[in-house]
Design a protein around this nucleic acid. Structure first.
Lengths: 196, 196
DNA sequence: TCGGGATGTATCGGGGCGATATAGCCATCA
DNA sequence: TGATGGCTATATCGCCCCGATACATCCCGA
């Protein structure tokens, strides 16, 4: 179980927390929420769902037409054959527990976006720790980038320099953005934000 | 041969075009040039070098101490045993040819940074096509992101909205940055930039 | 002179991604 | 009506990338 797949499990459980849906819709929702940051491919989605199913964190509802025994995922024929999944109590528990964690995985490029997307279900103090952790992480990256561009200052041509400057400015922007989020959070410490 | 590894080959050949070096240094240089955009891991670097070696695009110089026959890469013992690579004529040719291409791979997230890093060895008209191709690609992404955030406007909480807004603004910034590069290129059409 | 940190090459397993196959649903139009 | 094509939907497979790890050497300071 890699960090990445843990993250994916978290995201899927979070989406199913809002109600039962099928795989295709889960992908659509996740890509909609994460937008420009991350996309999810089918080659990742369905194995992840199988894993969650095996561990009993989600369950599939009875298929509408086929009244026979719910076929194994493996023997099931592909095609437009909707399989609606729902979260189990164990799944809810796993999600709540994961939402309370503040691992370094919550700060890195892949992790932070997903965690932020489920902030509405995250406690206020955990939110603050994640935001601050992410900010210091990005600041570290900024320093590394600056050292790099300093070292190669003389050697690099104008286009490479432009690339580095753009990267540097983007990183600076992310720090400012995070600071704004943190300040807003401080002003309204327990505001869970507008929820559906 | 995937798009990605083609790109990596291009980058390695470009670096070796400046003179012979060893693997570790190649990795350092590439990460220095691409900075915040892309990192290169060892698990990717050495197989790529082996591939280039097999295809005769690069060659390894005789090791300094071991006077015996140059051992196969496989049987070679690890450790601090510098292997200096140099580009071959066939390698130079392959690089020049790749530098002339304007595939869609030159516009995507991974590809564009690498191509830009070697603009000094790219002809002016090819540079312009790549810059404009990249810009229209990013503009497409921007529209997709906007459609997404439009669709989920009512449903999403404030943090997810903040994430999307940040992504949207970052994409807008990239478009402006590319426009600046294009304008500068138009003003000085044949300026190859400051070279070492 | 001894130890630790930077330098350096190499491999391995896990798993994500893109492509592809399959196929039901639905609108359009001759 | 039936043929076509595009969207929805599940599923799998191979390529190859990444992170971790191992191993080995160099260099510097205490």
């Amino acid at each position: 179980m890699s960090k990445r797949s843990q993250l994916l499990d978290f995201a899927l459980l979070g989406l199913l927390h809002d109600g039962p849906t099928h795989g295709y819709e889960l992908r659509r929702r996740l890509n909609e929420a994460l937008g420009a940051f991350r996309a999810l491919s089918y080659g990742t989605l369905y194995p992840a769902l199988s894993g969650l199913l095996e561990r009993g964190l989600i369950a599939q509802q009875a298929p509408p037409s086929t009244s026979a025994a719910p076929a194994t995922t493996g023997t099931r024929s592909p095609g437009r054959n909707r399989i609606v999944y729902e979260i189990t109590p164990a799944g809810k528990e796993a999600f709540e527990e994961a939402a309370r964690r503040t691992d370094t995985a919550a700060y890195d490029d892949d992790g932070f976006g997903v965690r932020l997307a489920f902030f509405a279900r995250t406690e206020a103090d955990v939110r603050m720790r994640i935001l601050e952790g992410r900010r210091s992480r990005v600041q570290e990256q900024l320093e590394t980038v600056r050292e790099n561009s300093e070292r190669g200052r003389e050697r690099l041509d104008s286009w490479t320099a432009a690339l580095q400057r753009h990267g540097e400015e983007s990183t600076e922007r992310e720090v400012r953005w995070l600071t704004e989020l943190i300040d807003a959070e401080r002003r309204h410490p327990t505001d869970p934000g507008p929820q559906p």
